[in-house]
């Protein structure tokens, strides 16, 4: 029983992390129609920035990572996705694939394939007993961090003019421009926010692994993207929920799959994802309203 509760908490932690990344995917997709596969490499790059700034302490390293991630996201927007603004959604997705590939290989070129290890003293480690169950401190921190970030994001999106305009643009981009919302500003803003979110993901992931490799962020983006699409890219709540469900399921599968099937956790998950895509192409959360193709 206690093992089950512990695996549930771990599942929540992984789910929270993937949910956060899926939320980033959904946020960006809502505004600019880019299902950005390259967000995974933004996570990786942020982790390398954390590594580069490790001597400056946790705060310094996070500061550096924030700058790097936001600049990278803005550059991506300006150089690739802004010129492609009118391209079909599938083309944008494939283009983001190529961006991810190019960036990952550039990181490989710069840092080599081996793990660069680093640990921050102030990042929590070890386990803690909560009501009789042993949970890793990192899992708890992940849940707290994601919660805080979610609250901040909701505050931004509902409480500030910028946030409301961003949601307006996400609802109807052309109409938002007709009431004065500057397309470039809101697009750049959305990209920048996904950069900030990626730094949090990078912080947790690199602490889990104890360092960074050029493919650190690949798994996160794959599952966050699947989760976001399954949950419904059109609604932020849907995307985040989808990411959470995918992450939590993956975590539960890897702890509870019988030995004979161990390793097939991803296969099962992807099979479920494909099934859900076919049954509810419009997303889990808001089903049935996807436009039928003529």
């Amino acid at each position: 029983m206690s093992a089950f509760v512990q695996s549930l908490i771990d599942a929540c932690s992984l789910g929270a992390l993937y949910g956060l990344e899926a939320l980033a995917v959904g946020l960006l997709f809502g505004v600019v129609r880019v299902a950005n596969f390259a967000l995974g490499t933004v996570v990786t790059t942020s982790a390398y920035a954390l590594y580069a700034g490790r001597d400056a302490g946790l705060a310094g390293a996070v500061g550096l990572a924030l700058v790097v991630a936001v600049v990278l996201c803005l550059a991506m927007e300006r150089l690739v996705f802004r010129p492609l603004r009118t391209a079909p959604v599938a083309t944008l997705f494939i283009a983001s694939f190529a961006v991810a590939f190019t960036l990952e290989k550039t990181l490989l070129l710069a840092f080599g394939p081996d793990q660069r290890s680093f640990v921050f003293d102030r990042m929590p480690s070890g386990v803690v007993s909560v009501g009789g169950y042993y949970v890793t401190r990192l899992s708890l921190l992940t849940i707290v961090l994601v919660g805080v970030l979610l609250a901040a994001l909701v505050g931004l999106l509902r409480g500030t003019s910028f946030g409301i305009r961003m949601r307006a643009a996400s609802d109807d981009f052309a109409m938002a421009r007709l009431v004065g919302v500057r397309a470039n500003a809101v697009t750049a803003g959305a990209f920048a926010i996904t950069g900030v979110m990626s730094v949090v993901v990078a912080l947790v992931l690199s602490a889990q692994v104890g360092g960074v490799t050029p493919s650190l962020g690949t798994n996160v983006i794959v599952f966050a993207l699947l989760g976001a699409v399954v949950g419904g890219l059109d609604r932020l709540g849907g995307a985040a929920t989808g990411g959470f469900v995918v992450g939590a399921t993956l975590s539960l599968l890897s702890s509870w799959l019988p030995d004979r099937l161990a390793g097939f956790d991803v296969s099962f998950l992807v099979a479920v994802v494909i099934a859900l895509l076919l049954l509810r192409p419009g997303g889990l959360v808001r089903a049935g309203t996807m436009k039928e193709r003529v």
Partner: peptide, 27 residues
């Protein structure tokens, strides 16, 4: 099933199929 989907759903679904084959072969 796949051919009924369009746009991003189609791209992501075919991508999932790739992941499925890849993960089965890899395990």
């Amino acid at each position: 099933f796949l051919m009924r989907l369009g746009g991003l759903q189609s791209a992501v679904a075919t991508f999932s199929l790739l992941l499925l084959v890849d993960s089965v072969v890899g395990n």
